[in-house]
Amino acid sequence: MLTEERRAFLTQRARQARALTLEAIYRVGRGHIGGTMSIAELLIALYDDVMRVDPSNPSWPERDRLVVSKGHAAPIVYAVLAMKGYFDPKLLDTLNANGTTLPSHCDMRKVPGIDMTAGSLGQGLSAAVGMALANQMDHRDSYVYAIVGDGESQEGQVWEAVMLAAQRKLEHLIVFVDDNGCQVDGFTGDILNMRPFDQKYRAFGWHAIYVEDGHSFDQILDAIHQAKQTPDRPHAIILNTVKAKHVPGAENTYQSHCFSLTREQLDNSLRNL
């Protein structure tokens, strides 16, 4: 259970991450707003409270790693990395710009703190499994975290990775499913319903936790705590989230996946935060 003070601090940090992200996307003109806003609390919880990282030494071998398989959420990952001191927040002004080191999708060769390049959906979990295997074989106690979209889970490769992680008992692998219910063409329930995720993960041998409010720091942190107490199995934490959370008029719409923010919408959102 978080203290009131700590909860307020984390909430403030998530607010800042959203603001930095929306401003950066506004400058670009168009971007992935829905799926960045849905994971703001998760990223802050991970980087501020959970992950063992050293921003001054991004390639520290003992670090915890994060694979953002839904690579289009890069803008908010960059915002949080900048907030953590991996690089100058001014760089966020260059998102997607010609010659930028901050491309639209997560890029490990260009951005300090990004552990895996992503962008083609369904592939990141395999890489996370590879990292967790390497840690396991090298007897390192580091954790590997991955964020996978709900729509993305329609890719069969996700389930290949799920099988392997269970076989290898990767107890230091924690996967978050950002179950925001929307994908590009529509609601996931209409396009190809994958719910209930926890049942699927359990059928494949995982420890699965369903989190009612994926924007609650208490619930996110509690789930991670539970996961770390459960041995011998990899962990799936299903986060019930809201696409485009805190962007007025865009919440829970699939059209919010990628769109242009007007000045008015930006101001409204920033006020709303």
């Binding site: 890489a127 990292m131 295997l133 990775a161």
Partner: peptide, 13 residues
């Protein structure tokens, strides 16, 4: 497909 991705992850380590 998973083999390719797992190998990528291994390589980063």
């Amino acid at each position: 497909q998973n083999a390719a991705g797992v190998s990528a992850g291994l390589a980063t380590c």
